[in-house]
Nucleic acid binder design. Structure first.
Lengths: 344, 344
DNA sequence: TCGCCCCCTGCAAACGATTGTCATTCCGTT
DNA sequence: AACGGAATGACAATCGTTTGCAGGGGGCGA
């Protein structure tokens, strides 16, 4: 079309098209929406003229009128305590999958990073009405805010841990089972002094630690506090934590890290301290992120299938958009054994 | 506040607040916007009542009126040819950094995945007016569309390769230099039969290949076509390509992969074929993504600093939002030597 | 030729904010 | 006491769609 010239970016509204077609605005609106009220011939003529002129409906005006935006919000609450960045591979992957799943359904994605959240943050986000529904990635320390909103706002799905007094829809791994599974594996290969590396303020991590404690107790291992070291999610924080662990408990023979990134940092610190992995110290991670399979040695880890998780979350969200409540899903963790753990 | 009760999610508009305050809507609007026309006392009263009632301005209505949305679009055009997914670590990281940088400036992020693009896609995206500006990640095969839009739409910044007839602002690595640098390193450690693995349809990759060819030519190596194998960006495609390479050129002694993911796949295939890396075959990647440092052996690679890249892009975009054209930036690649390449 | 129905199409009122223009009030001054 | 002027707040138009309602015109039967 000759119409696609350089000057063609001027704002063109529906009434302009109407004038061009010699009909009223409402007819154009109906024609573009495919309403049966409009004669087929008229419709074709209008559509033809509309896109010859490169007309695009203004979604803001449309959204204002319809109270519907065709947009899903993906929200990352980064708690005050945890310094988890969106640059953590877990979040990156989750975001990537969310984009894939949501755009597959023809919706747009509005990403919000809330850090650190103020009391009313979630309600404010909801009341802004910029999105038709919302996915929250990770509970961080915002369980109360989620409960508060979840009771009154249906189209909300949260990735995270299942908590007892929960009023919102959660899709998440059985983190207790994951923690137990990892620890039992370490015990099974003969390790006795097993450390836990991770910051337990997000409930997911807290539950992994609970699983760890349960497995230790079941095996009759006594877990001194020195073996449980809070570790942030960044490589720097994780390395510091691993060094503290080594200093306080030089005889440790296994490390269960709350994430693969932490595990890799531990690997690094251990090697630097002259420990062999897995001979002297076995290491197990969590997530099965891309790094785990290719590390040296390849990292045993607890896998969470984020592609599937994202699909489930978006499925449930769309059910909720249709007005049907959903119950959330608990996913089963899967132990992926690689070379960072072997029998001692 | 007693106001934060369960039933409080009902739509509350500015006129409601006005009624509650006993003033007109315009006064509320001005008060909330901090206009000097409103008396301080009135303003405080209004603000107090507004957030006691949990009032939140409707951004759609506001955007419609102001023709400004406080939102930046982040667009991923996935070309017809390349099957690059948003789940590639490069895209994921870039998206993560974009979210960080943009939300730092108080803007929202609208993510669009365009795949495979229809002719008018970029203009349509622009004309929708949902965003105040746009960042396009990767040119894919959409140079023409970008040129078309870039001439008339100022607030647009593209990540990618610098091309001769370019009408839009590009921030990107000097990919030719990167390719040359990688290849020269392989030559310097004594390799002679150097393969290139990568799909040259995105211009970035094409330029890396150009650098590779230039370096080979300068060193007097003859590059048979058999050594240049198109490889998709997914691990599966990359493995297939690596296998093809090995089948056709069993005597290859170095591989330059267009991305770290491809390099890791090559590593895998080589190992399976009984080749030692780096003794028999040296391998070099591109990106320095998280996997590179931790692989076995750790991967020599050409680093692009995505955090800096994201910052620069967003900086330039905001200058453009202020009406000032910008020239784009060419970033210098950096060779990161690890154990996957050593002197033969 | 008239009248009746049915398709179509157009009018106008929302959706929820912002802002130029103008009326009112209140003060001080002469 | 009357007037000028600053300060304050209300009115109404506007951003670009959608949609309930009503009206116009054409076809068909009588």
């Amino acid at each position: 079309m000759a119409s696609e010239t350089v000057s063609e970016l001027k704002r063109l509204k529906m009434s302009d098209i109407a004038r061009l077609c010699g009909v009223s605005t409402s007819t154009v609106s109906r024609a573009l929406a495919g309403s049966p009220l409009i004669q087929e011939a008229t419709r074709e003529m209008i559509i033809q003229i509309a896109d010859a002129n490169g007309y695009v409906i203004n979604p803001l005006a449309r959204g204002l009128r319809l109270q519907r935006t065709n947009t899903i919000g993906v929200v990352f609450p980064l708690g005050a305590i945890t310094a988890q960045l969106i640059s953590d591979p877990f979040f990156q992957q989750m975001l990537g999958h969310m984009v894939d799943e949501i755009s597959l359904r023809g919706y747009q994605i509005l990403v919000s990073k809330v850090t650190p959240p103020k009391p009313g943050w979630l309600r404010e986000l909801i009341k802004a009405h910029r999105t038709d529904g919302m996915v929250v990635i990770g509970q961080s320390d915002q369980h109360a805010a989620l409960n508060d909103a979840g009771q009154v706002y249906l189209p909300l799905v949260v990735w995270g841990a299942h908590l007892p007094d929960q009023q919102y829809c959660v899709v998440g791994l059985d983190n207790v089972a994951g923690g137990r599974m990892a620890t039992e594996h370490l015990i099974a290969i003969g390790r006795r002094r097993i450390a836990f590396l991770g910051d337990p303020s997000p409930p997911e991590i807290e539950q992994r630690r609970r699983g760890y404690l349960a497995a230790c107790k079941a095996a009759g291992l006594d877990v001194t506090d020195r073996l449980i070291v809070p570790a942030g999610f960044s490589p720097q924080q994780a390395e510091a934590a691993a060094e503290r662990l080594l200093a306080e408990s030089p005889d440790v023979d296994a490390v269960f890290a709350a994430s693969d990134v932490i595990a890799l940092s531990a690997l690094h610190v251990l090697r630097r301290a002259g420990k062999r992995v897995p001979e002297d110290v076995a290491v197990i991670g969590f997530d099965d992120s891309a790094v785990a399979a290719h590390s040296n040695p390849p990292l045993t880890t607890v896998r969470q299938d984020l592609a599937q998780a994202a699909r489930l979350m978006v499925d449930q969200l769309f059910q909720r958009l249709d007005g049907q409540p959903t119950d959330g899903v608990t996913l089963a963790p899967e132990l992926v054994i690689r070379q960072s753990t072997v029998r001692s």
